[in-house]
Deep mutational scan, measured.
Amino acid sequence: TQVHVDGVTYTFSNPEEAKKFADEMAKRKGGTWEIKDGHIHVE
C-alpha cells in the first residue's frame, strides 16, 4: 500500500500500518487522508 505525502511516497506491505501512518501524518499536518486509486493520499 502506498502513502503519498507532500510528493514523497512511502510503501507499506500491511494496509493497516499504512492507514495508521497516514493518520499520524495527517494529524501532524492538520489535514486529512483519503484513499484514491488504491493509494492513500495525505492532504
Rank of each mutant, 00 (worst) to 15 (best):
F21W: 06
I35D: 10
A18V: 01
I35N: 06
T32H: 15
K19G: 06
A26R: 03
I40T: 02
G38W: 02
P15I: 15
G31V: 06
T1N: 06
I40P: 02
N14A: 07
K27S: 08
G31Y: 11
D23R: 07
P15H: 12
S13L: 12
V3S: 00
F12E: 01
T1G: 03
A26T: 08
T9G: 03
W33G: 05
V5M: 11
P15A: 11
E43S: 14
D37L: 04
K36P: 05
A18N: 00
N14R: 04
T1P: 05
E17Q: 09
I40L: 05
A26P: 01
T11V: 12
Q2M: 13
G30I: 01
A26Y: 02
Q2A: 08
V42H: 02
A22K: 02
M25P: 00
K19F: 14
E34S: 05
K27L: 11
H4L: 06
D23A: 12
P15G: 08
K36D: 07
H4D: 05
T32S: 14
A22Q: 02
T32C: 15
D6Q: 06
T32R: 14
H4C: 14
E24S: 07
T32M: 13
Q2D: 09
I40Y: 13
E17N: 08
E43Q: 14
N14Q: 07
T1F: 11
D23C: 14
D37P: 00
R28G: 09
I40A: 02
I35F: 11
H4A: 03
D6P: 01
T11A: 08
N14W: 06
K36C: 15
H39L: 10
P15W: 15
K36A: 10
E16I: 09
W33H: 06
V8A: 11
A18E: 00
E34V: 14
D6H: 06
H39Y: 07
E24Y: 12
K29I: 15
A22H: 01
D6T: 03
R28S: 13
H4W: 13
T1S: 06
S13W: 10
G38F: 03
T11C: 14
K27P: 03
A26S: 06
T9I: 15
G30R: 04
K19T: 10
R28K: 13
T9N: 06
V8M: 12
K20R: 12
F12R: 00
V8K: 13
F21I: 01
E17G: 05
W33Q: 06
E17D: 13
Q2H: 14
K19W: 11
K27C: 14
W33S: 07
T32E: 10
D37K: 00
G38R: 01
A26L: 06
T9P: 04
V8P: 02
H41C: 14
K27Y: 08
G7C: 15
G31S: 05
Q2I: 13
P15T: 12
G38Q: 04
V8T: 10
T11N: 11
M25C: 14
A22F: 02
T9K: 09
E34L: 10
H41K: 07
V5A: 07
A26W: 02
F12A: 00
A18Y: 01
A26V: 14
V42T: 03
V8N: 10
E24N: 08
V42C: 04
K29D: 09
H41Q: 08
H39R: 04
T1V: 12
F21G: 00
D37R: 00
G7P: 01
M25T: 08
E34I: 13
Y10G: 02
H41N: 07
D37I: 02
G7Y: 05
W33C: 13
F21T: 01
I35Q: 09
K29L: 15
P15V: 14
G38Y: 02
